[in-house]
Simulated scan of single mutants.
Amino acid sequence: MSDVLRIEGLFTDIAQYHILEGVDLAVPRGQVTMLLGRNGVGKTTTLKTVMGHWAAKAGSIRYDGQDITAWPTPARARAGIGFVPEDMGIFTDLTVEENMVLAAASGPPDAARLERVFAAFPPLKTFWKSEAGTLSGGQKQMLSIARAMAEERVLYLIDEPTKGLAPAIVSTMAGALRELKGQGASILLVEQNFAVAKALGDHAAVMDDGRIVWTGAMAELAADAGLQERLMGLSMEAE
């Protein structure tokens, strides 16, 4: 299986702080790779560096066989990388429909794509003409992911999509991500809900202090409470 994304020796500084300290990470094509670790170890910075929001100080980012380390963010998006930030990144004063139209650089989403979005997130069809700011927190998160689905993407970078959501909404979110994977997408997913990580992940990479300290099958990590404790100071079995 080929890797859709390969990061080697990635260093990223933010102001005077050294955040990424030589990250090596591979994301297999058509799979869900979980990026795990305690808060503040560099997971979000990794996603933002891949997307070009932060510039890499050193190292390389290869996407779909191309070195994109120096590409601007719009070029990465046009090449098929979708980013769902933790802060959702929606326009609250625009309608759900307007948010979706703006998210698709190639033009308004076609009917077939919209039907897939509505099947994954039925409330968005109900509130299609409503301002995004009037949606609940869970519905806003649905819209955030739907915006990344507005046109076909090869790779999705998704930052904590279930954070702060009620269990029923978490289940809906997990189902939508599973559907994305079923459509052949590759996903690099930062997630603190370990039940979701266990259910969705094919592979896992654990970060600590700006580096990847373990990689392997998600099932292997999920089955080994001692490994979880050693890597992250917690046990999934307690979640």
Rank of each mutant, 00 (worst) to 15 (best):
L180N: 10
Y156Q: 05
G164M: 06
G184I: 04
K181C: 05
T172Q: 15
A150W: 02
L135G: 03
A166Y: 15
G164K: 05
A148N: 08
I187Y: 00
Q183C: 01
S144N: 10
E151N: 03
G138F: 07
M142L: 14
A150N: 11
Y156F: 14
K181N: 14
A150L: 10
Q141C: 07
A150K: 08
E179C: 00
A132N: 13
L189W: 01
A166D: 15
A148R: 02
A176F: 11
E152I: 00
L143H: 11
S130M: 13
E131C: 07
A132R: 12
T172C: 09
L155M: 09
I187L: 15
A168G: 06
E152G: 00
G175P: 06
P161G: 05
A185Y: 00
K181T: 02
S171T: 14
I169S: 04
L188I: 02
Y156T: 04
Q141W: 06
S186N: 12
S136L: 07
G182E: 13
S136H: 12
E131A: 06
L135A: 07
S171R: 15
E179D: 13
E152P: 09
A150S: 14
E152H: 11
S186A: 13
D159V: 01
G137Y: 07
M173K: 08
G164N: 11
Q141D: 09
T162W: 02
I145D: 09
W128D: 13
L155S: 01
L143K: 05
A148T: 07
L165C: 03
A146C: 10
I158H: 02
G137N: 12
L135P: 06
G184K: 03
E152C: 00
Q139V: 07
R153N: 09
A132M: 13
